[in-house]
Nucleic acid binder design. Sequence first.
DNA 1: CTGATTATGTAACTTTTGTTACTGTGTGAT
DNA 2: ATCACACAGTAACAAAAGTTACATAATCAG
Lengths: 211, 211
Amino acid sequence: MIQELKNSYGHLFEDELLNEIAQVGTFKEVPAGFTLMSIGDYVRGMPLLVSGAIKIMREDKEGDELLLYYLEQGETCSMTMNCCMGQTKSEIKAVAEKDTKLIMVPVQKMEEWTAKYKSWRNFVFQSYHTRLNEVLHILDSVAFEKMDQRLLNYLKEKIRVNKTNTIHNTHQEIAYDLHTSRVVISRLLKKLEQMGRIELHRNHIKIINLV
Amino acid sequence: MIQELKNSYGHLFEDELLNEIAQVGTFKEVPAGFTLMSIGDYVRGMPLLVSGAIKIMREDKEGDELLLYYLEQGETCSMTMNCCMGQTKSEIKAVAEKDTKLIMVPVQKMEEWTAKYKSWRNFVFQSYHTRLNEVLHILDSVAFEKMDQRLLNYLKEKIRVNKTNTIHNTHQEIAYDLHTSRVVISRLLKKLEQMGRIELHRNHIKIINLV
DNA sequence: CTGATTATGTAACTTTTGTTACTGTGTGAT
DNA sequence: ATCACACAGTAACAAAAGTTACATAATCAG
């Protein structure tokens, strides 16, 4: 584990902190599609991403969903910290977007390290900073843009995170992520295909040019 | 200033920190409607609210606006911290909702105090925590609710912050806050009036019962 | 008082999004 | 092969939100 840790976090944390993480953290490997957290779960640990990506979604009591952002290598989830601090249950859902390796750190360590290590403090602040900005961008997208533009943003982000030109999702899954209906997504995707920007296939979409 | 400071922050910070704030902070008093910050402004200080309330709005380059939340006594703006950390320009607009008293603290002090005072650290974390949650709730509202419900939420929050049953706004102003058009707001307000839940007047709305 | 300005009411229409319903077509299990 | 099922295409319609246009009423400056 210590090697994985150093590769992803060596440039961020001092050796002493890396050792502490190695001591109290537990290594986890989850396959794509694995649900790491659901709405209502109690938060026990803080994830430090080593490789892969995790999809973070907002989910309300009625089961309405909305994609917030992806966690990637070297990142953590400030939403988790958020829940820990408030002693509240999770209001988000976390699903592995790819096969993912991560280290879980008990939440009790968080405050201790915040006082002890400047690098940890910066990491936590940086994380809050990034997540707040990402949530703001999603808010911009939902509040100011129409569904066709939101779909384009979605496809672009998806190929960035997955480093591929083929998106392996059904129209229904995309509809869930954007909180709309399958018919709406099929309609808009068909338009993109007619513009020659994508190719539609069963269970996957080939990206030609999103500009 | 030290007295104002103690009233609002005495229970949060130790005396030593209160003294430091008093030394480097500048006291400010602004009237309702005063714009404290616009999009593109550089962030020079961090506001500590002493009394009153400040309306925080998201604003994009096209001038689209959306109300995010209100800052109240004893609170600060993590959006400000957010901007400071990233060395970026402000992506929000701040307007005094009521006559407001506040203390401006130079941003340079932030990191220094974060290392030095546990109470400050907690305050900053708590602030990020609260703001992230508030932005999430706005996101829920925009993503999952229809305009009639969003308008109700808006009116409720407005009377809570202003501690009054009369809202002194034009329909156009409300439309800006919710990022919709004046006609839509007039339409929905008229429905609420017909339900006997509000009374409409020129330049103000009397709240009867929002349940 | 008069005229200009601002706020509101409302009709008529368009656009966008959401819903229902039905079709056809791959895919995989047996 | 055949059956069941999940996925996608599409039409027809409904609902919500946005737009344009105009009328009327309150307010204010001169």
